[in-house]
Amino acid sequence: MTLALDLALCALILGVALAAVAGAGVFRAVIFFITYGLFVAIGWARLGAYDVALAEAAIGAGLTGVLLLAAHGRLRRMQADTTERRSPTLSAALAGGAIALALGWAWFALPAPQPPDVAQALPQTGVGNPVTAVLLNFRAWDTLLESIVLLAALLGVWMLARDADWNAPLGPRYHARPDGVLAYFGRFLPPIGLSFGVYLVWAGAESVGGAFQGGTVLAGVVLVAMMAQLLRPPRVSQAMLRAALVLGPGVFLLSGLAAVGLGREFLSLSPAIAKSAILIIEAALTISIAVTLALLVIGPAEDPEPGR
């Protein structure tokens, strides 16, 4: 019974992936990409990797989906041709297929590695969720650099603004009727989303959740509020905004340097303070991730009066 479910799920993932890359039209590809993310999230959940499932659903399907939809909307406003297919994708399909086959072969051919015993070292890390322990303690380097990469990506998006618009409000102008459905939704959803996002971060220490998942939910709340015109789009020059963006990587980096100052290795956490240190770093990271992701979606500063 469960085998039938898993096989159906695999077939759906493959079919939807094929539909996303092989179909004609940008809009169709985006919709299939979002569907693909949701099916992959179910797949991760079936494998018991609930942290990955949450991240895939929130970031892979949800936030990236909104990003792609926004990009499609932008293309339409620019009246670009979104149905065009440039060249046959046979070579790309062959290369992708070859890589998949090679990876599959490697999976079966290589000996199964002996995983390090995370469970044994877990009491030293300050948290009960092995995923959080790996992300913020054992492999803190990766997470620190990831948070900086996000910031670099946002700077890259901001660079797309024209010089004249640099200090204009970020993103396109959204329109919502003050007494319309979206305005109502924008007022109703944030309390629920805020509680859920904060809960995900807090719960991440001991069970499923974490800064990235919680931050993405909070970014979603910010986006809904902005699209409902309840939250004004910020400007690049706002000091509070910049502070929120660097808070996470900054606190992370400072805690790493503090460890060096105390005669330990960079980014290592002493077991005595690990729990509170991780919670503080995660809280700071969550704020930065939420703001960065939301601003990535709304895009660079735009001419406040387009079509002049």
């Binding site: 459905v181 939704f185 629920i192």
Partner: peptide, 8 residues
């Protein structure tokens, strides 16, 4: 929540 989102 699904009702609310779908309706909106």
């Amino acid at each position: 929540l699904a009702l609310l989102a779908a309706g909106t």
